[in-house]
Design a protein around this nucleic acid. Structure first.
Lengths: 225, 225
DNA sequence: CACCTTTTGACAGTTACTCTCATTTCATGG
DNA sequence: CCATGAAATGAGAGTAACTGTCAAAAGGTG
């Protein structure tokens, strides 16, 4: 998911260096590292994000201006906007949709999509948790408390929804733009996002993995009421 | 729904005058109209909205500034913001959640909620359509094309979701804050919103009522894939 | 008509975000 | 090691969506 809900909980990493071209013939034995340029860019990105998280924790979201963030990250405001299109994106942007898509495709094609999601999300929750539980919590809290952040998060849902459409379409042979495929996908996303909101609203007391499980159970059992 | 998706399609009316207190003992035979003050407020509200729709149709959403809207509606920018908290709200705000809630509660309590929604939404779509088809289309188009509007619309989904939770909770005896109730509701909302998006993206060629039907069919048939 | 309340407009200020341009910083081939 | 080109940065000006304040105007009431 591009950032929202459940995946929101998991991770915050920066994108992989995109496999540096390990030229076998030419270069030295050195693992063909990223150029200094790229390394610096990554550092800047991380610096901005870390500064943002810190400031928000200290003084809240609205009270934290981009100018402050820039100062804390030791860059100019211009640069902040070059790295992140909006303030909300600093908090939310991650690049997990592609990863999630890969993992979903790796599951057996005849497995019900709900079960595929169950496996993949469980793993994501576990990983995100052992790594940076605080970030998961901060994010979901902001999602519940700050309208702008919630909006941006909901926005990202539709991106993830498209991805889900593609996967489902491929499995079922239907079109990714099929009405049923699309509404089905968004129903899943909507439910899972709500599970994350529930988690945050209940002060993260439950185990997110369990909430996801229960949500998927509900979905696969079919709606009642 | 506070504004989003399917309900987006339906209506745009202004809120009912809130049943003027027809004091049977006191006042004159006059139907106890709204005071001049209230009538003026309504007129201003309508003027702002109409001006906004017109300007957006003429020059697009982003190109239309609040200042222009104010001028066209013959009020000051301050007043515009007094009536609508954000620019997106001018386009989106309606007050149909309460109405929808009433109609849902009017359905037999033992009817599956999906069927209740089917009846209520079908009627809403029909009404909204005979009345102001253009507004329905403009809205859904903006929802698909303008990120800010889409965000605001998604935002309103959660409000509608809460309402749905209350209705479902009452019918089933569960708590409105129950995880399953909440995720179930948001799955419904997510699916229906996506149906509206589908409608707009396909240039409103399909019949919205049919799309809603198919979506609800899919939901009640249970997920597959 | 006088008095009080609500609504309005004028205005100043904040902040997110955009654009442009000059400067600096890295990469690369000679 | 340096010259040249490309990319990243910073500075600064500008826009537009809001927010808050205060005084003037309009509506309601005795």
């Amino acid at each position: 998911m591009s950032d929202n809900d459940v995946m929101t909980a998991a991770r915050t990493k920066t994108p992989e260096p995109a496999a540096a071209p390990t030229d076998p013939a030419a270069g030295p034995a050195v693992p063909a590292r990223m150029g200094l340029r790229e390394r610096k860019k990554l550092k800047t990105r991380v610096a901005i994000r870390d500064a943002t998280y810190r400031l928000i924790r200290e003084q809240g979201y609205e009270a934290t201006t981009v100018e402050q963030i820039a100062e804390a990250a030791e860059v100019s405001p211009s640069t902040v906007f070059r790295y992140f299109p909006t303030k909300e994106d600093i908090v939310l942007t991650d690049e997990y949709d592609p990863l999630l898509e890969v993992e979903l495709r790796a599951r057996p094609a005849d497995e019900p999509i709900v079960e595929s999601l169950r496996h993949v999300l469980r793993r994501a929750v576990r990983l995100g948790f052992t790594e940076e539980p605080e970030v998961s919590r901060l994010r979901t809290t902001l999602m519940v408390e700050v309208p702008a952040v919630r909006s941006r998060m909901l926005e990202s849902m539709s991106v993830t929804g498209r991805m889900l459409c593609r996967v489902i379409a491929e499995r079922t042979g239907r079109d990714a733009d099929d009405l049923e495929v699309r509404t089905f996908s968004m129903a899943l996303i909507g439910a899972l996002t709500e599970a994350s909101a529930y988690w945050a609203e209940h002060d993260h007391e439950d185990d997110l993995g369990d909430l996801v499980d229960r949500t998927l159970d509900m979905l696969s059992a079919g709606f009642r009421a």
